[in-house]
């Protein structure tokens, strides 16, 4: 993600801001992050996203958002933020022993 606080911002260098692009592959599916691109504004970001990421029917809907507007959990993908869910095996169905002859479960 871009650092927008320093004097050496992309805008200060005359660079178009960075956008992240999300595409819905077809009806019934979630939008999925596919990549990023530069555009001067939201409308052109959408048009560029169409040209760059959906040249072969890869999508029925596009979202674009300024990269600088995204709040991310932390710099590290191995974040302690996710540690609490690591030891809660009882949240998974396989934690429970059910006899094999009980149907439909």
């Amino acid at each position: 993600m871009t650092d927008t606080t320093s004097a050496n911002t992309p805008r200060a260098r005359g660079e178009w801001p960075l956008y992240e692009v999300f595409v819905r592959g077809k009806r019934g599916l979630n939008h999925v992050h596919v990549g990023s691109l530069h555009a001067p504004d939201d409308q052109l970001a959408l048009r560029h996203a169409r040209d760059v990421y959906t040249r072969r029917n890869e999508g029925v809907s596009i979202w674009v958002v300024r990269s600088s507007d995204i709040t991310a959990s932390s710099p590290d993908e191995k974040d302690p933020m996710f540690a609490p869910s690591g030891d809660k095996v009882y949240r998974h169905p396989t934690f429970y022993d059910i006899p094999d002859d009980v149907p439909h479960m």
Partner: peptide, 13 residues
């Protein structure tokens, strides 16, 4: 073109 598009975006905003 790059500069004009940026200027237009800023003006519109």
């Amino acid at each position: 073109v790059r500069e004009a598009a940026l200027a237009f975006a800023e003006q519109s905003a």
